[in-house]
């Protein structure tokens, strides 16, 4: 039993870092422009399918395919901002309008994936020779270990960017007070477009890396990753980029420890329960101040 629990903790932490990255992308977009990206999971699936295509057609492994997905998604986010957000911010209820818009986008993306790759599950071949490494009697799945390592590096870079560079500080400032940033002479539109680009870049990154942990992908899986992102940012606090990491770790641990005690089919229910309890008990998140 104890071994099972330790194994669950290992798996929970490794996945939790990935979940943190998934949440961070959504959190930056929500924090900066109050846009709720309901298509988050579908964008991830798009990146996952691009990695699948790269590996299938050109023998490029998912990590190499980051060179394709990361710049592509940054560009998509940048363009998407100018296409949608200035208009959405003028709506009567911008949050609700953006939510519905991205519900529409999620349908469009799912259909596009279906049209291009079909409805059958696809699987990305595992790029490494060994499936897991053992250390001290415990097994570390290599795919998850490498993806967690990548995610941790990206999160670290992101934190350095947000706390140490001018641009990153500007993004944190606009999260706190949009008007004040404009008064200080920063173009809020340019900055928001950049944040949207960064947000989607993180989604693309997570999508390409997720196939190392869960190699099988289907076009309709997006919604469950959107849900993961929601749970993570509700846990960590909506609009708090660092909170996403904490939220990701808590959720990863809860999910994997839960799987030890409950049947696997009920695992998603744990996510819903966490979400509902958090929203009632502590809507500002674990790190947030009321």
């Amino acid at each position: 039993m104890a071994e099972l629990l330790v194994q669950a903790v290992i798996s929970g932490v490794l996945l939790g870092i990935l979940y943190g990255l998934i949440g961070m992308g959504m959190n930056i977009i929500y924090g900066v422009m109050r846009v709720v990206n309901f298509a988050h999971g579908e964008f991830m699936m798009l990146a996952a399918y691009l990695s699948f295509w790269a590996s299938h057609a050109h023998g490029i492994n998912p990590i190499q395919s980051l060179l394709l997905t990361v710049p592509l998604f940054f560009g998509v986010g940048f363009v998407l901002y100018y296409l949608l957000v200035p208009r959405l911010l003028q709506a009567e209820d911008p949050e609700m309008a953006s939510f519905l818009t991205f519900v529409g986008i999620s349908l469009v993306l799912t259909t596009l994936i279906l049209l291009v790759w079909g409805a059958d599950p696809r699987s990305v071949p595992f790029p490494f020779k060994r499936v897991s490494v053992s250390w001290g009697g415990f097994f570390f799945p290599l795919g998850r270990l490498i993806s967690a390592g990548f995610c941790a590096a990206v999160i670290l870079l992101l934190i350095l960017f947000l706390y140490r560079t001018y641009l990153g500080r500007a993004i944190r400032a606009i999260i706190q007070n949009r008007e004040a940033v404009a008064i200080l002479g920063i173009d809020p539109h340019r900055l928001s477009a950049l944040s949207m680009g960064i947000g989607l870049l993180l989604v693309g990154l997570a999508g390409s890396l997720v196939v190392l942990s869960f190699p099988a992908i289907t076009p309709v899986m997006g919604a469950s990753y959107t849900l993961v992102a929601f749970v993570v940012i509700v846990l960590g606090g909506l609009g708090n980029p660092l909170g996403a990491l904490v939220g990701g770790l808590v959720f990863g641990l809860a999910e994997n420890l839960g799987a030890v005690f409950f049947p696997a089919a009920l695992a998603p229910v744990i996510a819903f329960l966490i979400l509902i309890i958090m929203i009632f008990w502590r809507p500002q998140g674990i790190l947030g101040r009321p």
């Binding site: 009567e92 818009t101 469009v108």
Partner: peptide, 20 residues
């Protein structure tokens, strides 16, 4: 049948943006 979902999705986006 495939395009149905695509059009539904586009329709939501256009509705929110242009005919709220």
């Amino acid at each position: 049948p495939m395009l149905n979902l695509l059009i539904l999705g586009l329709l939501i986006v256009l509705l929110v943006l242009f005919l709220p």
